[in-house]
């Protein structure tokens, strides 16, 4: 039985690798102890805006895109009770319009939400992910990120994520990340794709080694410590879980 099978992990993804990097304790909580945790309104904001943009890019219907995004957000956040929900909801429409302005000239995507699978030598599970938009005519792959503060460059986590998509789709694709706020937007071209994929491979292999330490998830939990001030533990239920498991 592989290290991953012991914990019922069938694959890793850029987000699970990034999670392990950012908060090994949350990784243990979710993936090894099997606890369900809330992702918060901000994460749903991204999904909703992406949904709206996808609608526009395929139909040209901006009003419909905004409406769809708002509905999507309302649906996704109906049960989470995040105090930031209202603020996030208020930003949805403007973010969709900003995203439309930034990407409309690419035309209709050749594919959206495409699944990729990438095998890493020595890793017993594949890396799986879903890219946002591919424009085959232009040879461009775009991932959309929503934020309240426009970054001046691609974040490392995003770089690894999109680099993997491109590695799986074909290295000759021009990988780009579009950041949108409610007022501004910027699309950055990903650099050093190969190195970022290699980083993700290393992280994945580290996870494999880490979970191989023990069949007991509580022993793995005893090897890490949660930083309960990070947003990973901001949800009261998740915070309580951390306290019960780690006593912190």
């Amino acid at each position: 039985m592989s290290n991953f099978e012991k914990y019922g992990i069938e694959h890793l993804s850029p987000s699970s690798c990034n999670l392990f990097t950012a908060s090994p304790a949350m990784f243990v909580l979710q993936k090894c102890l099997g606890k369900k945790t809330s992702v918060g309104a901000a994460a749903h904001r991204g999904s909703a805006v992406e949904h709206g943009l996808a609608h526009f890019l395929t139909t040209g219907d901006a009003a419909g895109a905004v409406s769809l995004a708002k509905n999507e957000f309302a649906t996704l956040t109906a049960m989470i009770g995040d105090p930031r929900q209202e603020k996030e909801a208020a930003a949805i429409a403007d973010m969709v319009m900003t995203a439309i302005a930034e990407t409309k000239d690419y035309g209709k995507p050749s594919s959206m939400q495409g699944k990729i699978e990438y095998k890493v030598e020595g890793l017993s599970v594949p890396l799986i992910g879903y890219y946002d938009f591919e424009f085959e005519d232009h040879g461009v792959l775009i991932d959309l990120k929503t934020t309240h503060a426009l970054p001046s460059k691609i974040s490392t986590n995003h770089a690894r994520q999109v680099a993997l998509y491109v590695a799986a789709r074909g290295d000759n694709l021009d990988a780009r990340i579009t950041y949108v706020t409610s007022k501004k937007s910027a699309t950055y071209q990903l650099e050093n794709k190969r190195e970022h994929v290699q980083a993700l491979e290393k992280i994945a292999l580290t996870i494999q080694k880490f979970i191989g330490i023990s069949d007991d998830p509580y022993e793995l939990a005893s090897l890490v410590v949660p930083d309960v001030d990070t947003f990973y533990f901001s949800d009261p239920i998740t915070r309580q879980m951390a306290f019960e498991i780690w006593g912190l």
């Binding site: 690419y106 460059k153 699309t187 950055y188 071209q189 050093n192 970022h196 980083a199």
Partner: peptide
């Protein structure tokens, strides 16, 4: 050194 991620803004291909 750590690989750069990318800070070059690019625009959509012109029609």
């Amino acid at each position: 050194t750590p690989p750069a991620t990318g800070a070059n803004k690019v625009s959509a291909p012109s029609k």
